[in-house]
Design a protein around this nucleic acid. Structure first.
Length: 553
RNA sequence: UGUUGAGUAGUGUAAUGGUAACAUACCAGUCUUUGACACUGGUGUUGAUGGUUCAAGUCCAUCCUCAACAACCA
């Protein structure tokens, strides 16, 4: 906290509220609807809401906004809880809007008694038509003038199941000519003979968002109800209902939703990707869901850091994925165990090597003094990466080439003496000699080489599968492009390497481990690893050579 | 043609009438037993036009652009 940072607009509001004595402590809430998995956009909201009550006195509730029984499921409740905890946050109270259905019903009765709500028999089409347009006022209908007694009777009958879905609704009686369309007598209760994941069949009428969210905030005495920009027009109704109901005055504040480029972030679109099998479920590592990012190997620390760096504002933004990747690398660099894996092998024979296997100690993580070392077997028959050798190297290529020397990471300097090819002219083997005095750690050879390569000893190496991921979409903002967003899916977002050669220490890989495969990137064990090793690429290393190559082409 | 909100380097975020800053991205270089990491330097910014002021990203006026709003979704 020693770092100085200017306050964002919400922190400013809160500090003022605290300073003025309006509140001694604050209450926020994270209010997901349990109808899908959490994604990066939710992570923003989670970090914001929970972060605020970490910084200031107070607490945060996790409240499920479960007012629509037809779309909501318990499966989602569980995944959401898991994701919030995984991100590193603890809620004070776990609540459901459905916990408040009785109170909400009483609130509605109170509104009716005050002459501020009425039962409307119109169809949804009629209601839409009477509503007017943003530029034309709406009109009153005949049901608007029903007596309080009649409204009470009808509303109770709705509750008691006398009417079928859609036959009647309860509406707040505000102003059909209001410039804010949400104030044109909004529907606050509708009939749905549907089974609710928590209340079962107790209710056949359910409150609408606007008559549940603010009221739930108020019941929980939420001081700062933070939501996204699209709810700005709802604020007027939010305040109106709280005022007329004479309940705890929660206040709503809006900030901008954050989008990431090269992906989509709406639940509807993510659901389509899952249902139409464009990805392998909600936790596919290419998905911007929390569970997808978790499976991909992103850490909670990295995601929190990202949210912190991005800050908050009141305008729609499209964030660059590269910043998220930076945060991921930044954290992983500090904690990842270094390992060597050869993706596309070429055989190296050390012609002056004896037949023995030498066990080398190589550090787990040079960034972490407390990390240990693992044993890596070195022998006369090795694999190196095919792309680390060139027969006719360009300038600035400081890997292996005929007559050239490189260091093998943690081992010896070798010199390439001979290139062996098959009849078709393909390189099948490199014959090299090693410099015995050049062993890593006590190199007395005096030789300076420019390049260091990763390698594995053939005989001791183990086999693994690697899944390489690229961006899910080929365009920055698929949602704003013409036509179906799915036509912009990147067909090469998943690349499978089914037989890579890994150093033996990887045999003991655990699901919680994070690895850096030297010169390749960051990887983690995938949940598909039973009886075999499957690694997901979390993010690559920055690759200056790749840039050099690109420039040359 | 309505209401509401928003416009600051490529991308984000600051500067609350007083040197337009920070991060990332990008470019160039240094270092390196990971072409990683680290380090050094650089390119690049107030939507427009007027006005007030010694001084304007900030205040005022006009204009322009973008977004949200007419679900018995949240």
């Amino acid at each position: 906290m020693s770092e100085e940072r200017s306050l964002n607009f919400l922190e400013e509001i809160i500090e003022n509220d605290l300073k003025s004595g309006k509140y001694q402590s604050i209450v926020t809430r994270f209010p997901p609807e349990p109808n899908g998995y959490l994604h990066m956009g939710h992570a923003t909201s989670i970090c914001l809401n929970f972060g605020l009550t970490k910084k200031y006195p107070g607490y945060t509730n996790l409240r499920f906004d479960d007012t629509n029984p037809v779309t909501e499921e318990t499966e989602y409740v569980e995944s959401i809880k898991e994701d919030v905890q995984w991100l590193g946050f603890e809620w004070k109270n776990l609540r459901f809007a459905s916990d408040y259905f009785d109170q909400l019903f009483e609130f509605a009765v109170k509104l009716i008694n005050k002459g501020l709500a009425y039962v409307d028999d119109s169809t949804s089409e009629e209601i839409a038509q009477q509503k007017g347009t943003p530029t034309e006022p709406g009109v009153n209908n005949q049901y608007r003038d029903r007596s309080i007694e009649e409204n009470l009777r009808l509303f109770n009958e709705m509750k008691n199941g006398k009417y079928p879905d859609g036959a009647k609704v309860l509406r707040a009686k505000i102003d059909m000519a209001h410039t804010n369309m949400l104030m044109r007598d909004p529907i606050i209760y509708r009939i749905k003979h549907a089974h609710h994941h928590r209340t079962g069949d107790k209710w056949c009428i359910y409150p609408m968002y606007d008559f549940a969210h603010g009221q739930s905030d108020s019941i929980e005495e939420v001081t700062h109800s933070i939501c996204t920009l699209e709810f700005i027009p709802h604020r007027e109704l939010y305040d109106w209902l709280i005022e007329k109901l004479e309940i705890f005055p929660s206040h709503q504040y809006e900030f901008a939703r954050r989008n990431l480029n090269y992906t989509v972030m709406s639940k509807r679109k993510l659901l389509q990707l899952v249902n139409e099998n464009h990805v392998d479920g909600w936790d596919d590592p290419r998905m911007p869901t929390i569970s997808g990012m978790r499976r991909r190997g992103y850490t909670p620390e990295a995601i929190r850091d990202f949210c912190e760096r991005v800050g908050i504002a009141k305008r729609e933004i499209l964030l660059e994925f590269s910043l998220l990747e930076f945060c991921v690398r930044e954290h992983l660099n500090k904690i990842a165990l270094r390992r060597m894996v050869v993706f596309d092998p070429i055989k190296v024979v050390i012609t002056n090597w004896t037949n023995e296997v030498e066990m080398l100690q190589i550090e787990d993580n040079p960034e972490d003094e407390n990390s240990g070392a693992r044993e890596v077997p070195f022998s006369g028959e090795l694999y190196i990466e095919r792309e680390d050798f060139m027969e006719n190297p360009p300038k600035k290529f400081f890997r292996l080439f005929p007559g050239g020397m490189v260091r093998l990471k943690g081992a010896y300097i070798i010199k390439c003496d001979e290139v062996v090819k098959d009849d078709a002219g393909n390189i099948t083997q490199l014959n090299c000699t090693y410099i015995p005095e050049s062993r890593s750690g006590n190199d007395t050879s005096g030789i300076n080489v420019k390049g260091t390569l990763h390698w594995v000893s053939i005989k001791e190496s183990i086999s693994a599968e690697i899944r390489l991921y690229d961006r899910l979409f080929q365009v920055e903002d698929p949602s704003s492009e013409e036509g179906d967003f799915k036509s912009y899916i990147n067909p090469n977002s998943l690349q499978l390497l089914t037989n890579v050669h890994a150093e033996p220490a990887l045999k003991n890989a655990k699901f919680t481990d994070r690895f850096q495969f030297l010169r390749k990137g960051y990887f983690c064990l995938d949940k598909d690893s039973h009886g075999r090793l499957v690694f997901n690429k979390t993010v690559g290393l920055k690759d200056a050579w790749a840039k050099e190559v690109k420039k040359g082409s």
